[in-house]
Amino acid sequence: MNIRLEKLTSIYQENTPFEHLALNRISTEFEEGKYYGIIGQTGSGKSTMIQNLNGLLLPSYGEVHVGDITLRRRTKQKIIHQAKKRVGMVFQFPEHQLFEESVIRDVMFGPKNIGMGEDEAREKAEYYLKLLNVDEALFDKQPFDLSGGQMRKVAIAGILAMEPDVLILDEPTAGLDPLSHIETMELFGKIQKEMGITVILITHDMNDVYEYTDEVKLLNQGNLIRSGSTKDILTDEALLREYELEVPDIVRLTFDLERKGIKFEKMPGTKEEFIGLYTKWRDGHAE
C-alpha cells in the first residue's frame, strides 16, 4: 500500500491572529515496503506531516491518499478510522499512553478497537510481546510496575499488534540510554525487513537515518526541500549544512579521509563497512 500526498497544505488556527502555515503544498509519495526518514529542524513540519498520514490531522487543502482511502478537509470519522487501521503510529515517549490493568490487555486495546475479536487480539498481543522480548511472566502484571525500557516495548507492541501496513515512528529512541537506543533501532530494522512493511522514521539522529533508512524527505519551514535516496541526500554536505543538519559520522569521516587522499571505491553504509574498506585500502597501500 502506498501513501500519496497531493498538494497537502496544513494551516493551524486558520482565520485567527495565530494562523500559522505548517505545511505548504506538499506532493510526494511513500512506497510500500521502504524505510523512510523525515528530517528537518524543529518546527519544519515533520510532526504535522506524519499526523496527516493517518487522519489525526486532516489537510487544510489538498489530499492524502492512504491506499484507496482519500483524506481531505472534511472526511468523515468512519473513513478516518479505516486509515488508522492501516497506518500505525508510535509517538514520542509511547510509554505515556499505557492505561490498562495488565500488559496483555493494554497491547490488545488497539487490535480490539480496529475490530479484532478477543481471541485474535490476544494471539497478536502475545506474538508481538514475545517478538519484542517481553518476558511472558510480565504479561499479567500492571504496566506501571515495569521498568521504563520495558514499558516502552509494551507500548510499541500495542501498535505492532494492530498489524499496520505502514508504521510511523516519532523519535522512538528519545530518552533511551545508548545501548537501548541501538537495540530499539535494530529491532525496527528487523521488523521492517521481516514483515515487509513501510516504516517512516522521524529523528534528530542523522546516524540512524543514514544507517537504517532507504529514502529521505527533507523538510524546512513547511516546504519539502528534497526527497530521494538516503545515500544521495545524507552525503550532500552542503545541503545538510544549509539546513543545519548534522553530517552522519561515517560520511564525515570518509570525506575527511578523502581530503587527506584516502579514497574508497564507494561510500560505506555502516561502521563495519567502513572498517572493511579502510583495511582494504591500507593493505593496498602497505609498503
Binding site: 545508548p178 545501548l179 537506543h181 541501538i182 546516524n207 559520522d249 569521516l253 561502521k271 567502513f274 572498517i275 579502510y278 583495511t279
Partner: peptide, 15 residues
C-alpha cells in the same frame, strides 16, 4: 558495563 563507545573511540579502538 553495557556502555556504548562513542564513534571516534570505537574507530580508534578497531583501527
Amino acid at each position: 558495563s553495557r556502555l556504548v563507545l562513542p564513534f571516534t573511540i570505537w574507530m580508534a579502538d578497531r583501527l
